[in-house]
Amino acid sequence: MSSTFHRTDVAIIGAGPVGLFAIFECGMLKMRCHVVDALDMVGGQCTALYPEKPIYDIPGHPSIDAADLIDRLAEQAAPFAPTYHLGQQVEKLERTHEGRWQLTTSVGTVIDAQAVVVAAGVGAFGPNRPPLDGLAAYEGTSVFYMVRRKQDFAGKRVVIAGGGDSAVDWTLSLADIAERVYVIHRRPKFRAAPESVARMDALVRAGKVEMVVPYQLSGLEGADGQLTGVRVATLDGQEKTLPADALLAFFGLSMNLGPIADWGLNLDRNHIHVLPPSCATSAPGVFAIGDIASYPGKLKLILCGFAEAAQAAHAIHPLVHPGEALHFEYSTSKGVPGAA
């Protein structure tokens, strides 16, 4: 047996917020978990893309930064001693002769589990890059597709390109600390929460944000990876240059399910179709929760993913503990390991 072989009750693919909560739900039902994620940290998009972005629809938290949410979820899962396999991708998912599942990762880790929970979010993701000459020379130094620390942009001239929630949200967050914020969009209408757009409009009227509409990115100016200006143009060819130290380009993410697409699951437009009561997929013993799961009436909200984690855990229990009656108990009466 290889030293990288592990046997467990449940293997969870994805260490984002929903995957982390699945550890807790499985743990409350006395099921051990191993968790695999391609990122070298837990948290998924919350950690990789917007750790300092506030989230407003988590019950009990009027506002909580994404990174803080992940910290709390990891703390909540900790009493159940999950084993994390980070920085590796599940490449194979195969049924064993015992009727269990065997996962093999990109670094050779093998996990044998009774059940599998796919909480892979949108799968592998990467930014949609604007088609600008010389773009690569500035990436990571003055051109960014995500904000890890908003303080990195304090006192800088920041150009934000895009018309969705990310562009508007970071405009609101950076307006008070950046020297100047420019927002580039090809039309006056934004695809973002109306309340956020209204707050951005107020900043424009107050002179804290300059709206550059209707313009699109057309070029970059600078040297040695450091921007000095961003060129923009209208569709009829009018051009101008905005003085800039940094460009934040928010044109969405390109999604790739990767090996998941080859596992024989019932895919529906790059999502896995599941049965709502249990989140079961077309493969016995494999469940999908969170953004990757699809069913009629599905809402892509973290809080819905939390509920799906509970549903999947209860559906898995008879597979891990056959013949054992499951008497539902509230956590207030049951408690958690190590709690007083």
Results as ranks from 00 to 15, higher is better:
115 A>G: 11
115 A>P: 09
118 V>D: 05
118 V>G: 03
119 A>K: 09
120 A>I: 10
120 A>C: 11
121 G>W: 04
122 V>N: 13
122 V>E: 10
123 G>F: 06
123 G>M: 08
124 A>M: 14
124 A>V: 07
124 A>N: 07
124 A>E: 11
126 G>I: 02
126 G>Q: 13
127 P>Q: 08
128 N>Y: 00
130 P>Y: 00
133 D>A: 15
135 L>F: 08
135 L>D: 08
135 L>P: 07
136 A>R: 14
137 A>V: 09
138 Y>M: 03
139 E>P: 00
140 G>A: 06
141 T>C: 04
142 S>A: 12
143 V>H: 04
144 F>M: 06
145 Y>C: 02
145 Y>T: 10
147 V>F: 00
150 K>D: 03
150 K>Q: 13
151 Q>P: 01
152 D>M: 01
152 D>L: 12
152 D>W: 07
153 F>T: 05
153 F>E: 01
154 A>Y: 02
154 A>C: 06
155 G>T: 00
158 V>I: 13
158 V>M: 10
159 V>D: 06
159 V>Y: 01
161 A>S: 15
162 G>H: 04
162 G>W: 05
163 G>H: 04
163 G>E: 07
164 G>D: 08
166 S>A: 14
167 A>D: 07
167 A>Q: 00
170 W>C: 08
170 W>P: 12
172 L>R: 11
174 L>W: 00
175 A>P: 00
175 A>C: 02
176 D>V: 02
176 D>Y: 08
177 I>H: 03
177 I>M: 06
178 A>L: 03
180 R>K: 15
181 V>D: 02
181 V>Q: 11
181 V>Y: 04
183 V>G: 07
183 V>N: 07
184 I>E: 05
184 I>N: 07
184 I>Q: 04
184 I>D: 03
186 R>L: 10
187 R>F: 00
187 R>M: 06
189 K>A: 14
190 F>K: 04
193 A>M: 12
193 A>N: 13
194 P>R: 06
195 E>P: 00
195 E>T: 14
197 V>Q: 10
197 V>W: 04
199 R>C: 05
200 M>Q: 10
200 M>W: 00
200 M>E: 07
203 L>K: 09
205 R>A: 15
206 A>P: 03
207 G>C: 10
207 G>T: 06
207 G>P: 05
210 E>K: 12
211 M>G: 04
211 M>P: 10
212 V>R: 12
213 V>K: 00
213 V>D: 03
215 Y>L: 03
215 Y>M: 05
217 L>A: 09
218 S>K: 09
218 S>Q: 12
220 L>S: 12
221 E>T: 13
221 E>R: 14
222 G>C: 12
222 G>K: 11
225 G>V: 05
225 G>Q: 12
227 L>A: 09
228 T>Q: 14
229 G>L: 03
229 G>W: 01
230 V>W: 01
230 V>F: 08
230 V>S: 03
231 R>T: 14
231 R>H: 13
232 V>H: 11
233 A>F: 02
234 T>W: 04
234 T>M: 10
235 L>G: 13
236 D>A: 13
236 D>K: 13
237 G>N: 12
238 Q>Y: 10
238 Q>C: 03
238 Q>F: 08
239 E>I: 08
239 E>R: 14
241 T>F: 01
242 L>N: 05
245 D>C: 05
246 A>W: 09
247 L>I: 08
248 L>V: 07
249 A>W: 00
249 A>S: 15
250 F>A: 02
250 F>H: 06
